[in-house]
Design a protein around this nucleic acid. Structure first.
Lengths: 195, 195
DNA sequence: TTTGCGGGTGAACAGCCGTTCAGTTAGCGT
DNA sequence: ACGCTAACTGAACGGCTGTTCACCCGCAAA
């Protein structure tokens, strides 16, 4: 046996990334072997190297793709007028977008340390860019006089940590719908930053 | 060579746990080998098995010790009268205690999945107990009429995520002192939950 | 129908993994 | 001074690691 019947790179490539994401999120990058990923795809380990130069590059591709998607989606998100409306948009967007991509979000927070210095810096830069989006809203709100913050940097980190935390406990079909959670979190954020 | 000069289990035992914690926090449980831990201690890999039955038990011991310490320290923390004072005590305690034990906190959040089901349940139970402490404060405050919360469970998770997030960015000797950070976070929490 | 190559296989590489164990020595109670 | 045991070594176990490579076959274009 050599080539599989009906095999195409447009199919195998995405499947490798999907299975890698699932396994990395479930067991951790270091705990998952290339052979496990290959088995999940239904292929031999050597075939993975037609799609990635090495294991770390596979992880980096997942993280980079996620962060690019996050920034692109936020850029296209309708935001409304004024800092308050923009903050609400951010809160709801962050919760929604992250809940829909729980595995990728998990990876982006947990497996950064498995990247080499250059790759790490790239992802860290994208995260920083995203954080700066929120901080800009908070600063604008302070300038408008609708927010009262002792420190915009701390408020940024606090809000993001709080919002991202939803991913650790939210289960679809649970006591609360995603929309309800968005509303409650927005309420807490609104009060925390209001003048 | 066999026994080292000046070797004692009261010395080697704690050193193994300390080095394991440092390495697990730095590189991740799965990425650290028993030989690496042993080398950091200055001992051969086999010697570790005089102190732990296996690698997972070593991790479990670290997590269990941390969670026990956390609960014991909170039990002894002065809390003042009324829900507001108790909430402030919790906020300041959580930030302070966690910042002083960054590695253990990191481990407790990241490496839970490397535990078997029974060990996992133990740590998860202790964490639940800790969360319930905060939720009780929030509920009491609502009964007192000093807090206004749409959902005490969500508020609990939101506050803990927000506070624990400090560990991801805080650096001693940075722009803000620990006390300042405590005060700012307490201010945000206070506003977020206030009636 | 033949040809080229994209998409694989499967074996091999050197090296590391967690764990066990027989052997060896340091320190301590007697 | 002697013996016992706590503390540790170093080698070995089978198995797994990421990665490479020579080889092979199915599919599409000529």
């Amino acid at each position: 046996m050599a080539r599989k019947t009906g095999s195409h790179s447009e199919i195998t490539g995405p499947r490798i990334r999907a299975e890698a994401q699932r396994l990395f999120a479930r067991h951790g990058f270091a705990a998952v072997s290339m052979r496990q990923i290959a088995a999940a795809v239904g292929v031999q380990a050597g075939a993975l190297y037609l799609y990635t130069p090495d294991k770390e590059a596979l992880l980096f591709d997942l993280l980079k793709t996620h962060m690019d998607g996050l920034l692109a989606a936020w850029a296209e998100e309708p935001k409304g007028e004024g800092a308050r409306a923009r903050l609400e948009a951010f809160v709801r967007f962050h919760i929604r977008y992250n809940l829909e991509r729980a595995e990728a979000v998990f990876l982006s927070y947990m497996e950064l340390r498995n990247l080499g210095p250059e790759n790490f810096a790239v992802i860290e830069g994208l995260r920083k860019t995203y954080e700066t989006e929120l901080e800009a809203i908070l600063k604008a709100g302070q300038a408008e006089g609708v927010f009262d913050l002792p420190d915009s940097k701390l408020a940024t980190m606090a809000i993001i940590a709080m919002l991202t935390g939803v991913n650790t406990w939210f289960r679809a079909g649970g006591r609360l719908s995603r929309e309800t959670v968005e509303a409650i979190y927005w309420d807490m954020v609104r009060k925390a930053v209001s003048a």
